[in-house]
């Protein structure tokens, strides 16, 4: 334990792996004892200062990855760094700078919210007991639980429990906050509150990694996203990069949909779809004005034309697969 003593006061937050990254993993894999490959060689980079949405259906390996990040699960292979420190070896040094909520709140039902936070704080060997009361108070205030500080945890609503878990991750100033499904089971009101909290955490310059199986819950607050599917990271980049990935389509409103579809076909556009009074296709490399000219030259009355991009939701579903094919 003597080697740990130096830590929190020591090294600057210079990152050794990818410069400016709060989290980097390389070929990170986890195979459980049952043989199930839960995480399959992911290379994750969470830029410092970003709000990173870690997305994927339930069972896609998000929670296993997060548990490896905070040292609860030992990777089968690969490596990972938190704030430039290799894990799990550097856990004692780096984890005090990382707040986390892992797979839902878990506290002692017989204790009050305040006493539960005191318990968590007592476990932190780098926390100053002299400031504990003040820190617990301000963490509770931040999540709006000050009025329920003395209430027993068992009497908390699900939203309050979730917020208490977030308060536990804010007991000390952090450089990285990891929130695993912080909106799980919350009503729309609670979801909005949590989003507001995440915004306020990120506004202080803290990197936030937030996982969710619902893109809609996090797309408003994320700067970056990573998308998991059956243990693999199938997309990683900025939200703009994800949007740009969507193939643009061209959609034409016309009375002669059948004839228009033929023209689009001869122009070599893929995925031509025909509906009543409307026809659409993937635009590919063609310019929309060029397509329009060809249609007009073919004597097709063009009543309207636009080039929609698929919604993020569509892209997300395309990446993660529909319904039940999440694999096991």
């Amino acid at each position: 334990m003597s080697t740990d003593t130096e830590v929190a006061t020591g090294d600057p937050a210079a990152t050794a792996g990818a410069p400016g990254a709060a989290v980097t993993t390389s070929g990170l894999s986890k195979r459980y004892r049952g043989g199930q490959l839960a995480v399959d060689g992911i290379d994750m980079v969470v830029p410092a200062g970003s709000v990173y949405g870690f997305l994927g259906p339930n069972g896609s390996g998000k929670t296993t990855t997060i548990r490896m990040l905070v040292g609860l699960i030992h990777p089968t292979s690969g490596s990972l760094e938190l704030l430039g420190t290799a894990m799990p070896g550097g856990a004692v040094r780096v984890l005090p700078r990382v707040g986390s909520l892992i797979e839902g709140p878990a506290f002692y039902p017989q204790l009050s919210g305040q006493a539960n936070l005191a318990r968590v704080d007592a476990a932190d060997r780098t926390a100053d007991p002299a400031t504990a009361r003040a820190r617990i108070g301000s963490a509770l205030e931040r999540v709006g639980l000050l009025h329920a500080a003395g209430k027993r945890y068992r009497a908390y609503s699900l939203g309050m429990k979730q917020r208490l878990a977030i308060a536990a991750s804010l007991l000390r100033p952090r450089e990285l906050v990891i929130l695993d499904e912080p909106t799980n089971g919350l009503d729309p009101q609670g979801t909005r509150e949590v989003r507001g909290l995440i915004r306020s955490i990120a506004a202080g310059g803290v990197t936030v990694l937030v996982s969710s199986h619902l893109l809609a819950e996090v797309e408003q607050i994320c700067t970056d996203v990573g998308v998991m599917r059956t243990g693999q990271l199938v997309f990683q980049g900025t939200l703009e990069a994800l949007r740009a990935r969507g193939a643009r389509r061209i959609r034409i409103r016309t009375a002669l949909a059948g004839k228009a579809a033929e023209v689009l076909g001869t122009l070599g556009l893929a995925d031509v779809k025909e509906a009543a009074g409307e026809v659409s296709a993937q635009l590919g490399e063609r310019a929309p004005e060029e397509v329009c000219r060809e249609l007009v030259l073919a004597d097709i009355p063009v009543a309207g034309l636009d080039t929609p991009r698929p919604s993020l939701e569509d892209l997300f579903v395309e990446l993660t697969g529909e319904g039940f094919d999440v694999g096991g």
């Binding site: 334990m1 929190a8 600057p12 937050a13 476990a123 060997r125």
Partner: peptide, 30 residues
């Protein structure tokens, strides 16, 4: 704020770091 600035500010607000023995007894009391 850069990550390094955040780190420095974080440590300033975190207060004094207790000795390993004192921290162990605090957890035992808990």
């Amino acid at each position: 704020m850069s990550a390094a600035d955040a780190a420095v500010a974080a440590r300033a607000r975190a207060g004094r770091r207790p000795s390993a023995v004192a921290a162990w007894f605090r957890l035992l009391r808990s």
